[in-house]
């Protein structure tokens, strides 16, 4: 076995470990956070501060029977949860956590992450379709139309940034923002005056891409029961759940790298992995905070938002930036 293969395997194992740990403790953090927002303690019985709750949940999910509904497409039904989790883990491979901590630095890192993100919506389609549940089918159709309409403004925004930096390598993107926070992409410069708006668009799109409230139409529990994973129990459901949180981590990492200077310290001192983790967890906290504040949008409200507001503005921003880059 060559060294590169071994390296890759180690990288994947670490990525899986990181994703699983994050998924487990983000659930805990979400429940504690939601509890505090609603002025109740949240899980607090298992271990100190309820820190062992994820273990209990995991044990429960794993010991449950895996049910396949009659009439379901068995192969697809089994593949879908794996398909939800695997691309998320693969995306971790190319994310640079700091100047040195990166499994595989790729020149097309941004593209790769978006390619894997699209696979995620496929898993939702498979899950909804194969479980032969009307709610599931409706949810998966929703999720796919949502994914299509939100990838457009997201990618346009990314193109704007790639244009400014001249690279698709995530490492280069982060390095180009080194220094204090005044170098970050979120801060408007002469060449890109609308960057805060871009940031907002990207943020909203990543909420939608990760199926987080207020855009969680795929699972919309008060309408579609549990949406695409209505028929899933046991670890099948567990994988969807972990995949969702892994996607959130990736979304937060992308925002951090594209807009918030990656692993750079806001004051230009000691750039390190600590700053990177701090930024992504602050972003995730905002995700959680948003989820527990707002009601859900409607499917047409969501499409209207994308096609009538986000896409025109991001297109305008793209043209503006392209023009200004020529001038300055």
């Amino acid at each position: 076995m060559s060294l590169t293969v071994l390296n890759a395997i180690i990288a994947v194992v670490i990525a899986i470990g990181f994703a699983a740990l994050n998924a487990a403790y983000l659930v805990w953090a979400e429940r504690r956070g939601a509890g505090r927002i609603q002025r109740r303690p949240g899980p607090n019985v298992n271990g100190p501060l309820g820190l062992l709750q994820p273990l209990a949940d995991g044990a429960k999910l794993m010991t449950k029977q895996l049910m396949i509904p009659g009439g379901a497409d068995k192969a697809l039904f089994m593949v879908a949860p794996v398909l939800a989790m695997a691309p998320a883990i693969m995306s971790f491979v190319t994310i640079p956590f700091s100047d040195v901590i990166v499994a595989k630095s790729m020149d097309v890192g941004v593209l790769m992450i978006f390619a894997f993100a699209s696979l995620g919506s496929m898993s939702i389609l498979f899950a909804g379709w194969s479980s032969r549940n009307k709610y599931g089918v409706m949810a998966s159709v929703r999720a796919v139309s949502q994914a299509i309409s939100y990838e457009v403004p997201m990618l346009i925004t990314v193109i704007t940034i790639v244009m400014m930096t001249g690279s698709m390598n995530l490492h280069d993107l982060a390095v180009s923002q080194a220094g204090g926070f005044w170098h970050w992409n979120i801060i408007p410069s002469l060449a890109s005056p609308l960057m805060p708006v871009s940031f907002l668009i990207f943020f909203i799109c990543s909420l939608a891409e990760t199926n987080r409230a207020p855009f969680d139409l795929g699972e919309a529990e008060s309408e579609l029961v549990a949406g695409f994973h209505t028929e899933y129990g046991s670890m099948g459901f567990g994988l969807f759940f972990m995949g969702e949180y892994a996607n959130i981590v990736i979304g937060a990492s992308l925002i951090t790298i594209l807009f918030l200077g990656g692993w750079g310290c806001p004051f230009g001192l000691f750039p390190s992995v600590f700053w990177f983790l701090l930024k992504i967890y602050l972003l995730i906290a905002t995700f959680i905070w948003i989820r527990w504040t707002f009601p859900r949008t409607t499917i047409y409200g969501l499409l209207n938002l994308s096609w009538k507001i986000l896409i025109p503005i991001s297109l305008f921003n793209l043209l503006l930036t392209a023009g200004l880059l020529k001038v300055f």
Binding site: A34, D216, S222, P295
Partner: peptide
């Protein structure tokens, strides 16, 4: 009602 619309937190405030 707000929970029907997907917002869970107002229910908790209302229950208080």
């Amino acid at each position: 009602f707000v929970m029907d619309l997907g917002g869970f937190t107002p229910l908790m405030y209302a229950i208080q």
